[in-house]
C-alpha cells in the first residue's frame, strides 16, 4: 500500500505542485537576495549616496561587476566607491556583484533589476561577451546609458542586435603582449613554454591568450601546451603540475590571471623546479606582489583595476552630460616587475 501511495505521488500532480512551489520560492529567494545585496551596498556607500533613484538632481550610476569575491573586482569596486565619495555631489552609486563569475543568469537579473529601478547609467563588466547583449539592449531602450568595462562585448553580437555600447578598458592583448615580451627576453629561441588560459569563452581571456601567443611566437619560443585553469588557483595548480610532468624541458608558464599564476608557482615549487620555470601573470593582485619581490613570479600586468570602473563611470557621466559620444576608450596597462615594485 505504501508503494502504491508513492506511485500515485509520482504520477499525479504532486511533482508539478512541488516544482511550482520550488520555483516560486526560488524566485522569491533571488529577489530577496538582490534586495539584500542592494541594501548592503547602500549601507556600504555611506549616507550621501543612500538615496539613489529618488534624487533627481544627481544621476544614479549602477556598477555591475562579476564576482565581488574576486579580489580584482572588489578592488575595482572599492576604487569606484572612493571616486564616488570624492564626487558625491555629482552622482550616486549602486554596486552589485554576482556570486559566481560564470553565473550569467544572476547578472542578467541584476541588470533588469537596475532598469526597473530607473538608474541613469549602467557600467557593467559582463560575465559573458555575448549573452548579456539582449538585456543591455533593453536597458538602452529604457533610456539608460550603458558603458562596458573589463570584458569587451562581442562586436559581432553588438552589430547583430543593432546597438552601440562603448567599451572603456585596457587592451588585454597589448598588456599580455608586454608580459610575454618581458618573459621572452629571459629565454632563448626554441625554449618550451606553456599558456594557462582563463575560461575560454571570455573575451578578455581570449585576448590575453592571443597577446601571449603574439609575443612568444615572435621570440620563436615553442608553445607546447595551452590549457584552461578556469581562472582558479587550485585548478591551475593541478593543470600546471601535469604540464610540468609532461614537459620536462618546460621553461615558462604564462598565466592569464594572477590566481592561476600563484597556482602555477606552487606547482613549480612542488616539482622542485623553482628557478628553472618562470611564471608571468596578469592583474597585479596584492598576493602576487610578494611573489614578484621574491622572484618566484617574473612579472604581471597592472591594468589599474582600481581605476577601471572609475574610467567607466567617468565615461558614463560624460555621456549623460552630452559631453562624450559613445566611443571606445582605451585605458593604460603597465608591466610590473621586481624593479617596478621597488
Amino acid at each position: 500500500m505504501f508503494e502504491s501511495r508513492i506511485g500515485r505521488n509520482l504520477w499525479h500532480s504532486r511533482p508539478r505542485l512541488c516544482e511550482n512551489q520550488l520555483q516560486h520560492s526560488r524566485g522569491r529567494l533571488c529577489h530577496m537576495l538582490i534586495m539584500l545585496i542592494v541594501a548592503l551596498t547602500l549601507i556600504g556607500c555611506g549616507d550621501r549616496s543612500s538615496k539613489p533613484a529618488a534624487d533627481n538632481d544627481n544621476p544614479t550610476i549602477a556598477l555591475i561587476m562579476k564576482s565581488l569575491a574576486n579580489e580584482f573586482f572588489s578592488t575595482m569596486a572599492d576604487g569606484a566607491r572612493d571616486h564616488q565619495k570624492a564626487h558625491a555631489d555629482e552622482y550616486s552609486l549602486i554596486v552589485n556583484g554576482i556570486k559566481d563569475e560564470r553565473d550569467l543568469a544572476q547578472q542578467m537579473s541584476i541588470v533588469e533589476q537596475m532598469i526597473a529601478q530607473q538608474v541613469d547609467a549602467i557600467v557593467i563588466a559582463p560575465a559573458d561577451s555575448k549573452a548579456l547583449a539582449p538585456v543591455l539592449k533593453r536597458a538602452l531602450e529604457a533610456g539608460v546609458v550603458v558603458v562596458n568595462i573589463d570584458n569587451k562585448l562581442d562586436d559581432g553580437v553588438l552589430e547583430q542586435s543593432g546597438i552601440d555600447i562603448p567599451f572603456v578598458g585596457p587592451d588585454n592583448r597589448d598588456g599580455a603582449r608586454k608580459a610575454g615580451e618581458h618573459l621572452a627576453k629571459t629565454l632563448k629561441p626554441g625554449d618550451e613554454v606553456a599558456i594557462l588560459e582563463g575560461v575560454p569563452t571570455a573575451f578578455n581571456g581570449q585576448q590575453r591568450r592571443a597577446g601571449f601567443e603574439d609575443a612568444l611566437k615572435a621570440a620563436e619560443l615553442k608553445i607546447v601546451a595551452v590549457q584552461s585553469g578556469q581562472w582558479e588557483m587550485a585548478k591551475a595548480n593541478s593543470v600546471a603540475a601535469a604540464m610540468l610532468s609532461e614537459h620536462p624541458n618546460l621553461k615558462a608558464i604564462a598565466a592569464s590571471n594572477d590566481s592561476m599564476a600563484l597556482g602555477a608557482a606552487a606547482a613549480i615549487k612542488a616539482a622542485g623546479r623553482e628557478g628553472q620555470v618562470k611564471v608571468v601573470g596578469f592583474d597585479n593582485i596584492s598576493a602576487v606582489q610578494q611573489m614578484i619581490k621574491d622572484g618566484k613570479i617574473l612579472a604581471t600586468v597592472d591594468q589599474h583595476g582600481d581605476q577601471l570602473a572609475v574610467y567607466g563611470i567617468e565615461q558614463a557621466l560624460a555621456m549623460l552630460k552630452g559631453q562624450a559620444a559613445a566611443d571606445d576608450r582605451q585605458t593604460p596597462t603597465d608591466l610590473i616587475t621586481a624593479e617596478s615594485i621597488k
Binding site: 559566481d100 582558479e232 590566481s259 606552487a266
Partner: peptide
C-alpha cells in the same frame, strides 16, 4: 594541506 601546497589561501577555494 591545500593552503600549504599553494602557499596562499583563496576564499574561492574548494568550489
Amino acid at each position: 594541506f591545500q593552503t600549504s601546497r599553494l602557499g596562499a589561501a583563496d576564499p574561492n577555494a574548494g568550489i
